[in-house]
Design a protein around this nucleic acid. Structure first.
Lengths: 141, 141
DNA sequence: AATTACTACTTGATATGTCAAGTATATATT
DNA sequence: AATATATACTTGACATATCAAGTAGTAATT
């Protein structure tokens, strides 16, 4: 049987690494799931401090449905809050609640250290390069 | 609020791209899930055509438990078969069944074409490079 | 103004995979 | 030889996300 082509091979490698790294990160995000963390992080970067749910979904690579499900408990627990849009009753913005801001800061600190530890950027000199390629790729679809 | 460090940023990009690509591939693998596909592919490359469940898990980046659950329906449906190890009663090997071999061939063909289509390797000249870096990284943990 | 089509979000049913604990067997230690 | 430890796998309970379908509101077309 044959080997897979380069594009498909790339995708398979990606899937594997992601699965392994995601498990490693589990429990290192200050009690947040990876998706929770991504949500808080994206909100912290958002202009005006708020995002429509659908844009949030797009930014973290999940579906709108997934975002709805993630946000429900986060809202209950005081990590994020909801704001309606006066110009369009369909949309509801999400924004960081004070609890979410604190939690995110702590998680970023810890997760950043841990990420350096497992990726060892001083040894993997080409990591920055890889990172750049990756985010170009992300933009391309 | 601040940006995330380079290592953590890399991981976040990775997670996002993986999620998006995995959804794109859904339905392009000849009726197989991505994990099913990975299992069949790894079995096709394995020396002697068989693997212990635990090695299979390691190769595709899942846990042993996940592999057990994936394999059960695949066995029922005739994609893989099981073989016990005469030297160690704890292990059970997995190998491609004839149906799995056929299915894999078709899936590789289709998925390979689709992967080229979305990654456009002729345009993304640095894809091969990225791929190499990625699999080096995979080996490092 | 009424109809049609689209967009934002939510919900029901389901798939996929984890962790922790359990079973059975094998290996190492006393 | 008996006990302790480790390995390979499986299972129960649960988390996370998907898709397809539904609701409600907005925009475009007739």
């Amino acid at each position: 049987m044959n080997k897979v082509n380069a594009s498909l091979g790339f995708f398979l490698d990606l899937a594997k690494i992601q699965a392994v790294m995601a498990r490693k990160f589990d429990g290192k995000l200050n009690g947040l799931s990876l998706s929770d963390f991504m949500i808080l992080y994206r909100l912290s970067l958002a202009e005006g401090g708020k995002l429509r749910r659908i844009d949030l979904a797009e930014q973290i690579g999940l579906t709108a449905s997934g975002v709805t499900r993630l946000l429900l408990p986060m809202e209950k627990v005081g990590l994020v809050k909801r704001q309606s849009n006066e110009h369009d009753a369909r949309v509801s913005f999400v924004m960081l609640a004070p609890g979410g801001k604190r939690k995110l800061e702590e998680a970023m600190e810890r997760a950043g250290l841990f990420a350096d530890e497992i990726l060892q950027p001083e040894k993997n000199k080409r990591l920055a390069e890889l990172s750049g390629l990756l985010s170009d790729l992300a933009k391309s679809f």
